[in-house]
Design a binder for these strands. Structure first.
Lengths: 172, 172
DNA sequence: TGCAACTGATTGCAAAATGCAATCGGATTG
DNA sequence: CAATCCGATTGCATTTTGCAATCAGTTGCA
């Protein structure tokens, strides 16, 4: 289930990592949704992944070096998954993918608001977000000045603003 | 074979477009390799796609609006495939994918030199390249000043420089 | 005129991946 | 001590993929 090296082209090799239906969805939920546990990923995502596929992909992503697994100290049978630096540096790719999809595909407003925020913020915001992820997942010291709202807070606020506005619009 | 809208998330929808093993490879060969005919794509790529898969993906990419097909006036049964604007704007994604793969995956130098050039050139070079692609595939007037070396020429020159250096190194 | 080579595909078939539902043993909660 | 939650695993039907062979129409050349 590891890489089979169809060719040494970077685009081909990248595709061998997440050129399937689920790997990038799982990483999206971990990066943007903050999901760390099996059940969160299983029930939390809109798309509804099957548990056997999830188990298989988590294993595969660990073998490829994108995730690590550790025991959750608070709960003996709970495992906590962490992003590695390799996975965290996917943020710019996710941002570009989101920006492209927003332009060309029938995205829904609630779900594309995050992509819009990331697009507007540009590389500086991506860097801040990666810094936060390194802090959460790798225990690295955060470089962002205290008091700055986190990117995840901004993402959540933007999402809820859209939902609230939509609810209001249906009342009118 | 069209999009099934598992969810309206931009990343999910993007994955439904090219979250398979071949679609992005075909687009890569058209964008970077300048391939326009069935046989060029079939025999030209390093990875070796099967003809039925190629036919299926070309059809699918046309249905999704990423490619168009036209008769080649010089040859009654030759078809010429063109990139649409939707496909041309994948260049930044390709660049980011290449940059990521170059850092984290066992790429070969000959095949990653293009990714390196695109990374070093940054967004201005991507824009120039997209402009050239619009000229080639959509018949748009080119905005790049005359005399400027095309990006494809630069890509080719960089590739051949690596190959030549490697050949020399084995002689020494 | 004849024929080989080339054009964009199509067909048949085996193997692999996917999706779904049910289930597992251990841990925790009430 | 029963119910629930934990990260998975199993069995099975469906779908997708990969490979080899083949297709009919077109072209170049003798």
């Amino acid at each position: 289930m590891s890489i089979d090296r169809r060719s040494g082209c970077p685009i081909n090799l990248s595709l061998e990592v997440f050129g399937d239906r689920w790997s990038l969805i799982i990483l999206r939920d971990m990066i943007f949704g903050g999901k760390r546990h099996f059940r969160e990923l299983l029930n939390g995502s809109i798309e509804g992944i099957a548990s056997n596929i999830l188990a298989d992909r988590l294993k595969r992503l660990m073998e490829l070096g994108l995730l690590t697994k550790a025991d959750d100290p608070s709960h003996k049978q709970k495992a906590i998954y962490s992003l590695t630096e390799m996975a965290i540096t996917l943020v710019p790719i996710m941002a570009q993918l989101g920006a492209w999809g927003r332009v060309w595909l029938p995205v829904t407003e609630e779900l594309s608001i995050r992509a819009e925020l990331l697009e507007k913020g540009g590389p500086p915001l991506w860097e801040q977000f990666m810094d936060e992820l390194r802090h959460e997942h790798l225990g690295a010291p955060s470089k962002t000045p205290p008091g700055t709202p986190t990117v995840r807070q901004q993402l959540r606020a933007a999402y809820e603003a859209v939902v609230a506005r939509k609810a209001e619009a249906t009342v009118d």
